[in-house]
Design a protein around this nucleic acid. Structure first.
Length: 479
RNA sequence: GGCCCCGUCGUCUAAUGGCUAGGACACGGCUCUUUCAAGGCCGAAAUACGGGUUCGAUUCCCGUCGGGGCCGCCA
């Protein structure tokens, strides 16, 4: 049995985006599930558009997602000799030829054909130049490109998901495969690499479907075995056109920046065009590998819907270990670490344990990593609130004030060591009886300055006895 | 315009000839509850349309309509 080899082959002309990441994921899943090999190939033949920054972004993003290639990264710019050999061979065999037509001239023809409603195709002007003529023009230093001869026939090829696809080569002109012997174009470089890298399955976006018959031609001329083609349905924006920046689609690195977790992105992406057995939708990368089957891919395009991504992110955020989250959160806005204690801007000092508790309270209410501390920032900064916020339903300022004083007096009785949420809740329960609002509500506002927050006894525990009493006192002063 | 691909709740999808078309997100309601979040329960919501094949079609075939992709000396 031959070993499965697949590749993800982005061109570094932009950051790794959602669609690319999903293509990479499906290649990775297929390779892993088949005990095969997953490769990363950078398609950087176009010197004009290539940018090293994007190459780095793509590699970093893939690593961050956990989609590590199994072999050394291959760059097309480093294998120009290989393409040159193939180009020369094709010319020698008379499958490819030199074309001296000028760009301008061809553009005019193209427009004519387009307005006539025809498929624009190269008219074949240079197709049958004699060897002598070619050499003379080459010697004169005329500008040229290299075109592949396209036969006048219909072919069918197989796409794994879509079955037999018929294509009429007569609709196609002889297309350019290289600017010269040393500058191959995508249409040539890709099949050459796929062949020499031993790629068995080409899993890529459906936008490449029309390229497939062109690339197959090169396989045929070179007498190479064809790989299996799998064209993934596209990911679309809300207007149903190919997802792009125009739709506000974020790159993977931007999503990372905004506080999304890789687990959430992978889970979300996997479900765009694929589905595990049963009704389960929460699935880890390991489980995906176990269950992944090419046959389970579907062929209709999916619209990118951020709210489901957010759902997954919220879910995985809640699952995340608090200790691990410490390193992912940005504390710099709220104070600074000294040794293992955190010195907050409001003057309070929190132990590592307290910080873990804060994270626990924050992550329950956050969608994104960046929101975790934001939702509980009252622990770190001085806050203020209108005194009306302290009011519970129809109670008066006087009654609220009385309740806060009661709470304060009771809390003072607890020793520093027993100042925990369980004990504090007990006190609040005893004071309030069945009707909890008159005590719980003003205490929450006193400790958070907000009308929505984690339970007040949890806040009190984290603040500690002194700071809690200080905040209650501040509220009493207001009234 | 030509060629190719694709049509199941608003969105992601399950079911490929056979139970009231299932699940998830989002939405609405109820519940829990000191608030928020989470959780639990419930609800509304789909086979694009028209033919054909069949006892029976979301599923197979044809047509219509709709959507998308590609048509570079970009990838």
């Amino acid at each position: 049995m031959i070993k499965i080899r697949v590749r993800f082959a982005p061109s570094p002309t932009g950051k790794l985006h959602i669609g690319g990441a999903r293509t990479a994921l499906f290649n990775y899943l297929f390779a892993r599930s088949q005990k095969g090999v997953f490769l990363l190939r950078i398609e950087d033949t176009d010197k004009e558009r290539f940018n090293k920054i994007y190459e780095e972004d793509i590699i970093d993003s893939l690593n961050w997602l956990g989609l590590f290639p199994d072999e050394e990264i291959v760059r097309q710019s480093e294998r120009l000799d290989l393409y040159e050999k193939v180009i020369k061979h094709l010319i020698e065999k008379n499958y490819a030829y030199y074309c001296f037509c000028s760009k301008e001239e061809l553009e005019i023809r193209r427009q004519e054909q387009l307005t006539r409603g025809e498929a624009p195709r190269y008219p074949g002007t240079c197709r049958n130049l004699t060897k002598k003529e070619v050499n003379e023009r080459l010697d004169k230093g005329e500008k040229y490109v290299i075109r592949l001869k396209v036969p006048e026939k219909i072919i069918t090829f197989k796409d794994f998901l879509r079955g037999e696809i018929r294509f009429d080569y007569r609709l196609l002109g002889d297309f350019v495969i290289a600017k010269n012997e040393k500058e191959p174009l995508y249409l040539l470089a890709t099949p050459v690499d796929d062949h020499y890298q031993g790629i068995t399955h080409i899993i890529r976006g459906e936008d490449h479907l029309p390229n497939t018959p062109k690339q197959i031609l090169i396989y045929k001329y070179m007498e190479w075995d064809l790989p299996v083609f799998v064209h993934l349905p596209l990911i679309l924006g809300s207007d149903r056109s190919k997802l792009s920046k125009r739709h506000g689609a974020k790159s993977i690195s931007e999503l990372k920046e905004e506080g999304y977790l890789p687990e959430a992105i992978l889970n979300f992406l996997a479900l765009l065009g694929w589905h595990p057995e049963g009704d389960r939708e929460i699935i880890s990368l390991e489980e995906m590998i176990k269950e992944f089957r090419l046959e389970k891919l579907n062929k209709n395009p999916a619209i990118f819907n951020i709210s489901k991504l957010i759902f997954f992110n919220r879910y995985y955020l809640r699952q995340k270990d608090n200790q691990e989250l410490i390193s992912l959160l940005d504390f710099s806005k709220y104070g600074e670490w000294k040794n293992d204690n955190f010195y907050a801007l409001n003057g309070n000092i929190y132990s590592k344990e307290k910080i873990l508790k804060i994270i626990e309270l924050g992550k329950e209410r956050a969608n994104l990593i960046n929101e975790v501390l934001k939702t509980v920032e009252f622990f770190f900064i001085d806050f203020d609130y209108p005194k009306e916020l302290l009011l519970w339903k129809s109670l008066s300022f006087e009654e609220i004030k009385k309740n806060l004083i009661q709470i304060s007096n009771e809390l003072k009785k607890i020793s520093e060591n027993d100042f925990n949420s369980f004990k504090i809740k007990e006190i609040l329960d005893n004071l309030s009886g069945k009707n909890k609002g008159p005590y719980f509500w003003p205490l929450r506002v006193a400790l958070s300055g907000k009308e929505a927050s984690p339970p007040p006894f949890d806040l009190a525990e984290v603040f500690g006895k002194d700071f809690t009493l200080k905040l209650i006192n501040k509220a009493i002063q207001k009234l």
